[in-house]
Design a protein around this nucleic acid. Structure first.
Lengths: 144, 144
DNA sequence: GTTCATGCAAATCGTTTGCACAATG
DNA sequence: CATTGTGCAAACGATTTGCATGAAC
């Protein structure tokens, strides 16, 4: 069950602004824009509402699933899987589809040099650990 | 031309450790591990060396290209392109390949619920702006 | 009137940096 | 010995949070 959320002018404006652009704006850009309109606006409110909207699934946040940079000594191109439960980040064996870059070049005016794919879901360990008693629902994963 | 880098026990150990694991470790995990071995080690050194190794192409850093979270009101599945020069982040029209998830499930024990693809390269604007005088080589892109 | 949102400022967290000293070539 | 690396602590920048006040229901 999600929490009850009252409407607010601030949240409405934030959503409207994010919907009006295709630039995938950052929080501070949103803040700068709306500040002109709602001069009392604070940055904390922008962050709070972006999180609420993301939680509600109304917008999407691109944060790579973790705040921490991760390092990999395998520099050969390969894809990754990221477990949404435990946060593990593993290499996949699937061959990399080099043709994809060309396909995108065909439909855009861009020069594509590389691409990256991440798959999300549940890893085998977490699948098996499913519901032994209760589901640890929102276990925000920590570093390490 | 890259800079001259002298060898150091710290950097050697960091590289060895990153190479010895497939867990895509974070800086602080690396620090914790090596601290046992090199008790004088400092976190700053770990970061400095991870950056050097990344710069040298010996390891790879997964940082999503920007420090800022970006938000998108288009929650329908679609892929993205990220310009390595100006940092613009744009939606692609290519249809999403839903079959990919199944393919990965076939070769792993994971339950895949979604995937995400980002293409990297140069956008049309940056391509055309190429070398009018000089190439703005390492323009680290700012917010907005 | 109870609940949730706001603005503000302080706090947090990952990462970077300036500096004096130590190690490398 | 000239140059780069280290440890330490302070600085940084994005994001979060505690608190008193204000708006929504």
């Amino acid at each position: 069950m999600g929490k009850k959320h009252k409407r607010s002018k601030q949240r409405d404006s934030i959503l409207e602004l994010v919907r009006s652009t295709v630039t995938h704006p950052t929080a501070s850009w949103i803040y700068d824009q709306l500040k002109k309109e709602i001069s009392s606006l604070s940055l904390g409110t922008v962050y709070r509402n972006l999180n609420i909207l993301t939680e509600q699934g109304v917008i999407r946040k691109f944060d790579f699933g973790s705040t921490f940079d991760r390092y990999d000594a395998d520099i050969s191109p390969h894809y990754h899987f990221c477990c949404e439960r435990c946060g593990s980040f593993v290499d996949l064996e699937t061959p990399v589809d080099e043709g994809l870059n060309k396909e995108i070049e065909k439909i855009t005016d861009f020069k594509i040099s590389s691409h990256r794919i991440e798959f999300y879901g549940l890893c085998d360990k977490c699948l098996n650990a499913r519901k032994p008693r209760e589901l640890v629902s929102s276990q925000r994963f920590k570093k390490s």
